[in-house]
Design a protein around this nucleic acid. Structure first.
Length: 275
DNA sequence: CGTCGCTCCTGGATGC
DNA sequence: TGCATCCAGGAGCGAC
């Protein structure tokens, strides 16, 4: 599922492929994938606008267009954005095809249909639901060790659900949350405020490390994830706990456990990550 | 306001 | 072998 490293990898591939090109239109096959505008409006609004910049905020992609509007995209779990030549066969669950000035296409496919695409005026971007209230960028400068420690002190919730809270930190999903907690040797059920300064410090570094490594490895491809060119990432080979239930811990050899915490499956080593 | 549980959806895994 | 059921998961929503 696309989390920060996957969305960043897609952003980079889109920057290579579609930046500077002009939209010629959009063909929508599944209406509910577009939010806020009708398929007809999406088509007419996009037509003739050039792609000037592609940003990422948390797990959102923001494609800036001439004329002060932007296309905001969230891929949720199974969404894909693929840059294709027109003769390339459509993958299953292709819901929108954007036509580009170079005769190529940007295609939006999503098996589970949870993804969303919207058109927003740049003035309204900060008020856009989803973007508004998004927390700090974990790889940005404002996410400091001191900020993280201070925030944890006031939170009575379990650390794992807190890491997934996008209004706290933007971009961490289930895979990187589990990986960061393992690297920091912290049990996912620990109450956030109970973390010692040392533990908070370790977790802070672990978050930045796993996300950074995820980007370097061009994302984690477990099931569906591919970048804008259809290429898989390689970070799945870097995972220590996620999806490794029943396998031996890479540190101590004890069996990796899986448990539902806050409604999300969590993978951890019961010996290295004691409660 | 913080926290929780439910909902959307498909297909792969599991159960009988 | 075939059918039914369960489960995964991000974020928005209503409930408390």
């Amino acid at each position: 599922m696309p989390e920060l490293p996957e969305v960043e990898t897609i952003r980079r591939s889109l920057e290579q492929n579609i930046k500077g090109k002009t939209f010629m239109g959009a063909e929508v096959f599944l209406e509910k994938m577009v939010k806020g505008v009708s398929p007809l409006e999406l088509n007419s609004e996009l037509k003739g606008r050039e792609i000037t910049r592609i940003d990422r905020r948390g797990k959102y992609l923001i494609i800036h267009l001439t004329g002060g509007i932007a296309m905001v995209i969230h891929l949720r779990m199974t969404g894909q954005l693929l840059y294709c030549s027109p003769e390339q066969e459509k993958v299953r669950h292709t819901h929108i095809i954007f036509k580009l000035s170079d005769m190529c296409q940007l295609r939006f496919a999503d098996q589970r249909q949870f993804g969303k695409i919207s058109l927003v005026s740049v003035r309204e971007l900060d008020n856009f639901p989803g973007l508004k209230g998004l927390g700090v960028e974990p790889l940005g400068e404002t996410f400091s060790r001191e900020f993280f420690k201070k925030e944890l002190r006031n939170r009575r919730t379990k650390i794992k659900p807190l890491l997934l809270d996008q209004t706290f930190i933007a971009g961490i999903g289930n895979i990187y949350a589990d990986e960061a907690l393992f690297r920091a040797m912290i049990n996912p059920e620990r109450i956030a405020s109970s973390l010692t300064p040392r533990e908070a410090s370790r977790l802070y570094l672990a978050i930045r490390t796993v996300l950074q490594e995820g980007i370097e490895n061009k994302g984690t491809s477990i099931k569906d994830y591919v970048d804008g060119d259809g290429n898989k990432g390689s970070n799945q080979g870097n995972l220590r706990v996620y999806g490794r239930e029943g396998e031996p811990c890479v540190k101590c050899g004890k069996e990796i456990k899986r448990k539902s915490i806050g409604g999300r499956s969590s993978h951890f080593c019961p010996k290295c990550q004691k409660l």
